[in-house]
């Protein structure tokens, strides 16, 4: 169970190093002014973490370095598409890294759907539930994630960072599939509940 030990270390670092509050401003500066100082700030925060992300998902050091740099190249190019009203900067960068990983490490496509409300009709907007984590600031969300029970954060991290299916997570942790799914559900529900209390 060394994998699980590693995920536990990752969990504790979430609580100790909050992301810099300037991430969204830096993305805007890159989009509007091609600001290389702002880009350096983004790079320093994200590139080492994306490299770790790629390593966790099976890339060797050289490939992980290459994919981390490539993710940041895409962050530069797509910075104009980032809308702070719709997602936190880290959530957006996560999707860029995830899509690149699926393309390069799995040689598959990620079927991406426009998730934001801009393209929606009034009817759809009324139907959409309002209980989302949207707009929650990154530092607070990190703290909430760090407060999740260990058993929940383990299944979450195995899904996000080991690329394991729920059935594979169940095997790794020696728990039934239904337990894996209910822990994932609980984790998301807990974050959502904490968000509602605050807003």
């Amino acid at each position: 169970m060394t994998q699980v030990a590693i995920t536990h270390e990752a969990q504790t670092s979430a609580a100790t190093t909050p992301p810099p509050p300037e991430l969204a401003d830096w993305l805007a500066a890159v989009a509007q002014r091609h600001d290389r100082v702002a880009f350096a700030g983004l790079f320093q925060w994200f590139a080492p973490r994306i490299k770790r992300y790629m390593e966790r998902l099976g890339a060797d050091h050289a490939l992980a370095e290459d994919l981390a740099q490539e993710t940041l190249v895409q962050v530069w190019r797509k910075a104009g598409q980032y809308d702070p009203a719709k997602a936190g900067p880290s959530a957006w960068v996560f999707t860029v890294a995830r899509n690149l990983r699926i393309d390069r490490l799995r040689r598959q496509r990620f079927f991406e759907v426009e998730l934001t409300e801009a393209a929606e009709t009034e009817d759809e907007r009324r139907d959409g539930h309002q209980r989302t984590l949207d707009g929650l600031d990154a530092a607070r969300l990190s703290a909430l994630v760090a407060e999740l029970p260990t058993e929940q954060i383990h299944v979450v991290q195995l899904a996000y960072f080991e690329g394991l299916s729920h059935a594979e997570v169940g095997k790794a942790l020696e728990v039934p599939l239904g337990t894996v799914k209910s822990r994932l559900r609980l984790a998301l529900t807990k974050l959502r509940g904490a968000m509602e209390v605050e807003s």
Binding site: R49, Y53, E55, A91, F94, D127, G128, H129, T132, L144
Partner: peptide, 25 residues
């Protein structure tokens, strides 16, 4: 739209987990 909102939440969680990873040199 309801499930799109859920996926946004799950991506927020992904971003937060990314922030929480230890930095690789």
């Amino acid at each position: 739209p309801q499930c799109r909102a859920r996926v946004r939440e799950a991506q927020d969680l992904g971003g937060s987990l990314l922030d929480g990873l230890d930095a690789a040199p």
